[in-house]
Design a protein around this nucleic acid. Structure first.
Lengths: 121, 121
DNA sequence: CAGCATCCAGCTAGATACTG
DNA sequence: CAGTATCTAGCTGGATGCTG
């Protein structure tokens, strides 16, 4: 890049920066039905390493998408939940999900037409 | 990652793979109002190097999001346009755009509340 | 015009081990 | 439990030069 631009050119780009991280959309997806602890997120997304989970969660927190609540107990307990901004992105992810399903159907994929796995209530 | 998964866990993930590439959403955004040539895309997205532009376009083509039409002339002319699948993703990008604008407003960003720059007709 | 080939720096993210 | 620290392989993507 001959000229580093210091901002976003379009809100689409901003949105992708915030929710386009490697696992961010999945994390938000998991949190859409309620609060989860670190290990619960790890259990639901086994392909994410703790290192990455931490990083993604910290970034989402910094972007005001999720909240992080630490309970000063022994053993420690930390709960993650969607902040208002995070809740507002859920409909967008829903439409992304619908489109993604359509894509999987029309394009054909290793695992085809796997319906949206919602976090069990 | 202790276990490499060979598919998608959720259509959301599939969608992000397809449109979540570094410049893909922007490219689709540019193409939503009509066909563009390689250099026209480069002019509209000056921060993308030709190398990356080519790669992103090829991937979008492979995913059936865009079409690539080569006119065997001198000088060569190549035109890119949205395939049906690509057109179907535009509404999703629209909602992403709306949310992104909201994010820029509430979170505050270097360039705040820059309205969606649509490719001029 | 519309790329491709090559080289290489920097970042990403996995594996592993350790802690308040 | 909920991370952090360190090391490192591998990928990403920029710069440059070349071509049908």
């Amino acid at each position: 890049m001959n000229q580093k631009l210091n901002g976003y050119h379009c809100p689409v780009e901003a949105a992708l920066v915030v929710i386009g991280g490697k696992w961010k959309a999945l994390i938000i997806w998991q949190l859409k039905s309620g609060t989860l602890r670190f290990t619960e997120l790890m259990d639901r997304l086994p392909m994410v390493t703790p290192r990455m989970m931490t990083k993604q969660l910290r970034e989402l927190e910094e972007d005001a998408v999720i909240t992080r609540t630490v309970y000063p107990e022994v053993p420690p307990r930390v709960e993650y939940a969607l902040a208002p901004l995070g809740k507002s992105v859920v409909p967008v992810l829903d439409s992304l999900c619908v489109w993604g399903a359509e894509y999987l159907t029309s394009h054909g994929c290793p695992i085809q037409k796997k319906t949206c796995k919602k976090p069990e209530p």
